[in-house]
């Protein structure tokens, strides 16, 4: 990459961060509007949903973070195979620091041993970059900003689970997923969306559960068993009555996205990631010259 290309690539990355932090993707807005419509008038649930909708509007107009917790910075990237990988990651970190300086990201990354915050959001584990080469001649750069409140209510179950009464079958899987929703109550800033992995090892399970949030809210799982499970989880979770912010109400979950991985005979993990209503993810097709060609959501 020549200097001019690097500058353009950097600029595009900062723009992807800005847009992710300040603008809610259209598919998520539709889901939130649907949630607002079903809550009864003069309830605190409706009050919460109205404020959420106002917030989405103001953040976009002012180009300021939707939520002050700009979250774990998770990049999911496909890059042309001949790309200089080290340079690419260096530019990503530079973009994160620049976006932090501009206020699109909060100074949000703390040294776990000393408690020190260097104010740049760059350090061990931040940003998180999942990148794979591919044969195409452009970049696919997707970004997710996942707040701490919802990250904290994620849960991983090892079946069988005695407390929940969940066995090593699909019924058990369903039970632990619903249990995770009940345990989360309003702490994850609901109404939320679940990303779930059935199977895999512990680390991959959580990773793939987060990857589910790259799917559009209104897509349909190509696997009919999972598609059915996704629908059932949403319907049943909404019977729990936890509602927006845990105030009580009809919309507890706006969606569930599930993946299944093979597992060891000895292991049966169900990994549940919870995404808050402030579901910030965006992506762009970026040319090898470094220019944004198309938004992906």
């Amino acid at each position: 990459m020549k200097a001019k290309q690097q500058a353009l690539f950097l600029e595009s990355l900062v723009e992807i961060i800005r847009k992710t932090s300040t603008e809610m993707p259209a598919d998520v807005v539709r889901a939130i509007e649907k949630g607002r419509a079903v809550e009864a008038e003069s309830t605190s649930a409706k009050y919460a949903m109205n404020i959420i909708c106002d917030n989405i509007g103001i953040a976009k107009v002012k180009s300021q973070p939707l939520c002050q917790d700009t979250g774990t910075i998770l990049f999911f990237i496909h890059y042309p195979a001949k790309t200089d990988y080290e340079l690419m990651t260096k530019l990503i970190k530079k973009a994160v620091a620049a976006a932090t300086k501009k206020g699109y990201l909060r100074q949000n990354s703390v040294d776990s041993l000393t408690g020190e915050n260097n104010g740049t959001n760059v350090g061990p584990g931040s940003p998180v970059i999942h990148a794979e080469p591919w044969k195409k001649d452009f970049f696919d750069i997707r970004l997710m900003l996942k707040g701490g409140g919802c990250e904290n209510v994620g849960a991983q179950y090892s079946l069988p689970d005695g407390r929940v009464g969940a066995g090593r079958d699909l019924l058990g899987v369903k039970k632990v997923i619903l249990d995770a929703v009940q345990q989360a109550q309003g702490k994850g800033c609901g109404p939320g969306v679940l990303g779930v992995t059935i199977g895999g090892d512990r680390g991959t399970g959580y990773f793939v559960s987060k990857e589910q949030f790259l799917r559009k809210m209104d897509d349909k799982n190509p696997n009919p068993v999972l598609a059915k499970l996704e629908d059932e989880i949403v319907q049943e979770a909404n019977r729990l009555g936890i509602g927006p912010m845990g105030f009580g109400g009809k919309t507890t979950l706006m969606g569930t996205k599930i993946a299944a991985l093979n597992r060891l005979p000895a292991s049966f993990f169900v990994s549940v990631s919870y995404m808050c209503w402030a579901f910030r993810r965006q992506g762009a097709k970026v040319s090898v010259q470094g220019a944004i060609q198309k938004w992906l959501y």
Partner: peptide
């Protein structure tokens, strides 16, 4: 007093 989580802009205003 429960504020609306995530509503950073409404609250900042």
């Amino acid at each position: 007093l429960h504020a609306i989580g995530g509503a950073a802009q409404v609250l900042a205003e």
